[in-house]
Amino acid sequence: ITRVVSLGPYIPKTEDAWVFAKPNAIQAVGVMSFAFICHHNSFLVYSSLEEPTVAKWSRIIHISIVVSMFICVLFATCGYLTFTGFTQGDLFENYCRSDDLVTFGRFCYGVTVLLTYPMECFVTREVIANVFFGGNLSSVFHVVITVVIITIATLVSLLIDCLGIVLELNGVLCAAPLIFIIPSACYLKLSEEPRTHTDKILSCVMLPMGAVVMVFGFVMAITNPQDCTHGQEMFYCFPDNFSLTNISDSHFQLTTQLPTLNISIFQ
């Protein structure tokens, strides 16, 4: 948010930066869907409530979704306002390594991942235990399966350095079925409500929409992946274009070097 004001005005804007819903917008639907997916944790979280009731669960879900949506919209808006068409799949790749404030943000994000990963690992292990071992794991298998899950996830993360393609594929292959297709299909199959019922109409709309997002999103993610810097700093981080010499909460200095213009901005 701070960098929208301190850095945004000095990043060149791309052409058609404010054109809404370009042809590859369907890829963003998958990414946004993945950001809100929580179905795989629902049963475990519900059972962990001190007094699990539908009313309490509904209140928790609605509050969590609203807060998550606010944070996602805020970060996405601030990121795009700052970098427009230069925005990367991983927003942190847009910031220079000398940016102390963003480095602290990366640290906070890393802490978030460390705290979130055990829950995801727990769900994966629970599914494996229920499907292949009848829900019961010995101490040895408990450790072995946990190590295998962590090892596979770590290897994949080390081999792939572009977060954008990971979010897109997870969105279209995992989030779209879990959010749009499977719940709608189950409701249409099990519900005894008449066909004209509002929930059935919504399910009939969401199911094909999810299928479209899944199929076309996958094709576009493969044929038209998001830009990725592969760990390289953006052009405005280099002296020939921009040099971020000291960036912190209290002091920001940006030197723009152009053939006929040399500007120093202090805030």
Rank of each mutant, 00 (worst) to 15 (best):
I1D: 00
T2M: 09
Y10T: 05
I11Q: 04
D16E: 08
D16F: 08
W18G: 01
K22P: 07
P23Q: 13
I26H: 07
Q27C: 14
V31A: 11
A35V: 15
H39M: 14
H40Y: 14
H40A: 14
N41R: 08
L49S: 09
E50R: 06
E50Q: 06
T53Q: 06
V54S: 00
V54K: 01
K56I: 00
K56P: 00
R59N: 11
I60F: 15
I60S: 15
S64E: 08
V66I: 14
V66S: 08
V67H: 02
V67D: 03
S68T: 04
M69T: 15
V73P: 00
V73A: 00
A76R: 04
T77A: 12
Y80V: 01
F83I: 06
T84M: 04
F86A: 11
T87A: 11
D90N: 14
F92I: 02
S98W: 02
D99M: 01
L101N: 09
V102C: 03
T103E: 10
G105D: 00
G105E: 01
L115C: 11
L115S: 09
T116V: 08
T116K: 06
P118R: 05
E120T: 13
E120P: 01
C121H: 03
C121D: 01
T124K: 01
V127W: 03
I128Y: 05
I128Q: 06
G134F: 01
G135E: 08
S139Y: 03
F141L: 14
H142R: 04
H142T: 02
V143H: 07
V143Y: 06
I149E: 05
I152A: 10
T154H: 10
L155W: 04
L158R: 05
L158G: 02
L158P: 00
C162A: 11
I165S: 12
C174L: 15
A175L: 04
P177G: 08
P177R: 04
I179L: 09
I182Q: 04
S184N: 10
L188M: 14
E192Q: 14
E192N: 15
E193A: 13
K200G: 08
L202Q: 15
L207T: 13
M209A: 14
G210K: 04
G210I: 09
M214Q: 10
F218W: 07
V219D: 11
M220P: 02
A221P: 12
I222W: 13
T223Y: 10
P225I: 10
Q226I: 13
T229G: 08
G231H: 08
E233A: 06
E233N: 05
F235H: 03
F235S: 10
F235W: 01
P239K: 03
S243N: 04
L244A: 01
D249A: 15
F252K: 04
Q253R: 09
T255L: 02
T256I: 15
Q257P: 01
L258V: 14
L258Q: 15
T260G: 13
N262F: 11
F266E: 12
